[in-house]
Structures are given as structure tokens and as C-alpha cells.
Amino acid sequence: MNEPMLEVQGLKKHFKIRKDQTLKAVDVVSFTVNKGEMFGLVGESGCGKSTLGRTILRLYEQTEGSIKFKGQDVHKASSKTKRKLDQSMQMIFQDPYASLNPRSTVMDIVAEGIDIHGLYSGVKRKEKVYQLLKTVGLNKEHANRYPHEFSGGQRQRIGIARALAVEPEFIVADEPISALDVSIQAQVVNLLRKLQLEQGLTFLFIAHDLSMVRHISDRIGVMYLGKLVELTTSEKLYKKPLHPYTEALLSAIPIPDPDLEDKREPILLSGEIPSPISPPSGCVFRTRCPRVMERCTLIEPEISEYEPGHFAACHLYDEIGDSRKEAAASKVT
């Protein structure tokens, strides 16, 4: 049985722009991440996925909704509990250049969390850092160097070592490969997968590269304009996407076979992404959807389970969703 580690329910994160303007970065998002799972979160730039990850870790205060880590509400916890949560929940940042202090050595960067939580000191502190560097594919000679002496891939490995230093259970990886060369991306992804399997870590892996997310994730959530529009296993999402937005994203993934690539017809979305300051009425995707209907303009679709373990927010499947709800209700009665 899957044991939920992270439970996000009805989460909103809105930013006040002016007195009469609010940017709805994350708007009523709900999902669960199970213990030991690699949960992928994908979507275009600006869809709110990074804001969601930062809100989960309390880098932003939520506007509404709840975030529970192992049953504990992370935003309502006491100061003592929040300190423990800070140790249990860590983050790997997107930019390995900006996320490391250029004036600190690798030893002090990796050991920062160790010092804050008082985990090790003296020789044990040094040995712990050496062990962490070895874990991420570096060596102890790197400990006395500064960030500018490393490549982008090596800097990201340092960021991963820093996240692992306090022995967390849950890690938010916020687009950890987007700033890296293609040749290095696979190495970092394989390292994260290896850490997940060997150390039993749970990941929220945020990215916009669907082909890479498919390789690493157990389940995938698709976001559009602050909302979760589809959620299912990696296998189901790629074999049978339900939401038109997911179909368009998948059609943009290049096929390595040149003959098949020439015959393929990608789904081209017309129009621009609406502003999260003034989202469309009804379905937020309706202004770009090739299968839009009248009800899409009037009614916002709820994310519902249309197949076992496959959720989507789309009016195309309303009849299926209604029949599943009626069947579930009949079982209860």
C-alpha cells in the first residue's frame, strides 16, 4: 500500500501586484506524493510549478489550502517542528551558478546545513563532507575549491551534496538540469535516480523536458497557468494522454528516427499563454485548445478520475467522470 509522504490540498499561492490586481501563480492544486516516489511536475515556463515547489518548502507563504508532510501541516507547525521539517525537506535549485556562494569553499557550502542543525563538528564534519562529495561523483580534493573552479554539471553535483548533507527524506528538485549541457543532463538525472533507490528518498522533480521526466518519474502531474490539468503514472501519460494540453506537449518531443519524425504531425497551439493576472473564464486552456466547446467558456472543469489512477480536468470526459462518480456512490450506499 502506498504511504503518502506529502499531501497538497487546494493549494493557492497568489501575489498581490497592485490593489486591484492579483497574480494567481498556483490556483487550487491538489496531489499526493508517496514515500519513495519520484513525482514529476511538468509544464511551460510560467505555469507555476517552481512557485509550487517553493511554497511546499515554506520559501513562500501559502495563500490558501494545506500542505502536510507526514501528516504535519508545514505552515501551521510550531517553531521546533518547523526546524525538524527544514531538515527533512530540502531543495536542489535550478541555477547551479546562482545557488552557490562564490566566496565560500565547497567544504563550507556543503556543510552549511550540518552546521545549522548541529549534526557534526570537527573531524566528523570534514569526513561527512568528503563522503557526500564521493556520493555525488566528486572527490575530497574538491572540498577546498571555490564554485568558479567547477563546470556547470559539477556545481549541480555540489548543490545535490548540500541538499543531502542534513539527511533529508524529501527533496524538491527545481529544474535541476535545465541550465546544463545536454551531455551532462543524463548524468545528473541518473544520479538522482540512483540516490532515490539507494537511500529511499522521495522527490518532487520539476521540469519542462517531458522526455527526461518520462525517464525518471513514477507519476507525473501536468500544470497549466497555475492549475493541475492531468495526473497519472508515467506509462499511462505517454501511452494515452487525456488532456489536449498534455497531447500537445507530448507531440513536441522529437523522435530519434528521422523517417518517423518526418511523418509526424506535431500539435501546434494557436494564440499566446494568457496572463495569470487575468486568466480566462471557465477552462484556463480554452483560449488555445483545438477541441474547445461552449461549456469550456462557462464552466471550469474539476480534476476528476476518468480511469483508475488517471486524473484530468477536461470537459471532454465529463460523461465518463459522472458515471464513475455514480458507480462509486452506489457502492457506498
Results as ranks from 00 to 15, higher is better:
residue 73 D to Y: 07
residue 189 V to T: 05
residue 161 A to I: 05
residue 277 I to N: 13
residue 83 R to E: 14
residue 318 D to A: 15
residue 33 V to P: 11
residue 238 Y to G: 09
residue 326 E to K: 06
residue 320 I to W: 15
residue 180 L to S: 05
residue 300 E to Q: 03
residue 249 L to H: 02
residue 36 G to F: 12
residue 117 H to W: 11
residue 231 L to Y: 11
residue 100 L to P: 00
residue 287 T to F: 01
residue 307 E to I: 03
residue 301 P to H: 05
residue 297 T to V: 08
residue 63 T to A: 07
residue 7 E to R: 08
residue 196 Q to S: 12
residue 289 C to D: 14
residue 46 G to P: 15
residue 279 P to V: 11
residue 223 M to K: 06
residue 22 T to G: 09
residue 295 R to S: 11
residue 63 T to I: 14
residue 40 G to L: 04
residue 15 F to D: 10
residue 45 S to Q: 11
residue 289 C to Y: 02
residue 308 P to G: 10
residue 235 E to C: 03
residue 99 S to R: 00
residue 6 L to M: 10
residue 201 L to I: 13
residue 164 L to C: 06
residue 10 G to A: 09
residue 17 I to F: 13
residue 193 R to L: 12
residue 257 D to S: 05
residue 51 T to K: 07
residue 152 G to Y: 05
residue 195 L to T: 07
residue 77 A to Y: 00
residue 23 L to A: 10
residue 162 R to K: 09
residue 154 Q to H: 00
residue 124 K to M: 11
residue 79 S to W: 07
residue 216 I to Q: 02
residue 142 H to V: 06
residue 114 I to L: 05
residue 90 Q to Y: 03
residue 50 S to H: 09
residue 179 A to I: 07
residue 75 H to L: 00
residue 325 K to R: 10
residue 138 L to Q: 04
residue 74 V to H: 07
residue 156 Q to A: 06
residue 62 Q to M: 14
residue 140 K to F: 01
residue 264 R to M: 08
residue 104 S to E: 15
residue 144 N to C: 02
residue 21 Q to D: 11
residue 291 R to A: 11
residue 184 I to L: 09
residue 174 D to K: 03
residue 102 P to Y: 08
residue 208 H to F: 08
residue 35 K to L: 01
residue 193 R to V: 13
residue 299 I to K: 07
residue 332 V to N: 02
residue 96 P to I: 14
residue 85 L to D: 12
residue 315 H to M: 06
residue 222 V to M: 12
residue 75 H to N: 03
residue 327 A to R: 08
residue 148 H to C: 04
residue 257 D to C: 04
residue 328 A to T: 15
residue 171 I to L: 07
residue 75 H to D: 02
residue 317 Y to W: 09
